Simulated assay, not measured.
Amino acid sequence: MPLPLIPLVVAGAAAASTAIASKKGYTSYKNMKETKTLAGELESKYKSAFNEFESSRFQTNHAFEQYGKMKLEILDGTMKQFVDTFKQIKHVNFKGEAVTDKLISSKDVVEFVLQVEKQVVKAGQVMTAGIASLAGGGLAALGAVGATATFSAASTGTAIATLSGIAAQNATLAFLGGGSLAAGGLGVAGGTLVLGGIALAPALAIGSLIFAASTEKKLKEMYAKKAEVETEVQKLNSARSIMSTISSATNSMRELAQSTNELMNINVERMAEVIEFKGTDFREYTTEEQVIVHQNYKLAIIMRDLLNTSILNEEGELSPDLESVMAAVKEKISTN
């Protein structure tokens, strides 16, 4: 009698179906778990790299701002004192081996002092208006670009606008300062032009890959996303490396300007003492006193050149001759 076998066959088929369904369910569960685990790892990795990148961006912009502030303080401080003191001396004539190793005409001296005085006046105007008035990355612009470029305007308001304008025009400065397109900056898009072509993904949307009908398909997509995330992390790390180099160069320039300023302060005081005890006629000074005046002149030239040296060029890249400029300044100071 075959009929009694039917329930057994049905039962067997049902058991087989249950086993298959159970296996598929387990595979689906395993895929989902692996997808979620991978998504968590990728999100954590990306967030960590992005946070470090943002920190580096802030630090680099801060380094520019600190150096820009120092430039203003030096121009409105020591350089102003130099101009005010040096201009009191009459009949300055740097001739003879006791004073200089090359001929410097009186015209050159006058033109130099006038040039420095213009920058001193502009710095004083900005300081009077208040550093807070340098909105839109103006302070960072002064730190990144030479004083000559930033103080080329004719009036206080224009000078401040020029400083901010430089930040808006320079992709790296706008990028570092978070300048948006709406605010006149170049934003991230502009910053990528100079940060090695880096294009940062605003959102990786990792979580959206987790919930879907086909867990096997989504697991494959998540592994594809893994390659994308690793590429973005590499870009972030590359950008961080570039910013670290820029920040390091800026800090080195600031330290050099600070040490030069300290040396210049001492020499300006010595020059003021010469005037106090010997008057303002350079011809009446002893050789030693004339040397003091000449040292002030040379230090002022060094400081002017240092403050006029741009850390970033017009393309927003690190100036290639920055190292040689710093080396030259250090050598001049050591022989002064």
Rank of each mutant, 00 (worst) to 15 (best):
M1W: 09
P2C: 15
A14H: 04
S17K: 15
T18L: 08
Y26Q: 06
K47R: 00
A49C: 07
A49S: 13
F50S: 14
S55Q: 14
T60H: 03
K71V: 02
L75E: 14
G77H: 05
T85D: 12
K87Y: 11
H91C: 06
N93Y: 05
E97D: 11
V121G: 08
A123L: 14
A132V: 07
A135P: 03
G136S: 02
G137V: 10
G143A: 01
A144L: 14
V145W: 00
G146F: 00
T150H: 00
I166R: 08
Q169S: 09
Q169R: 13
A171V: 09
G178R: 08
A182F: 12
A182I: 11
A183N: 00
A183Y: 04
L186A: 07
G197A: 15
L200I: 12
S208I: 10
E216W: 13
L219Q: 01
K220M: 03
K225S: 13
A227H: 01
L236E: 01
I242P: 05
S247H: 09
A249W: 04
A249N: 07
R254I: 14
T260I: 06
T260W: 04
E262H: 07
M264S: 06
I275R: 07
D281V: 07
D281L: 05
D281C: 08
T286F: 04
E289M: 12
V293I: 05
M303G: 10
R304Q: 09
R304D: 02
D305Y: 02
T309P: 01
T309G: 01
E314Q: 10
E317S: 13
S319D: 15
L322Y: 15
V329K: 04
K332G: 15
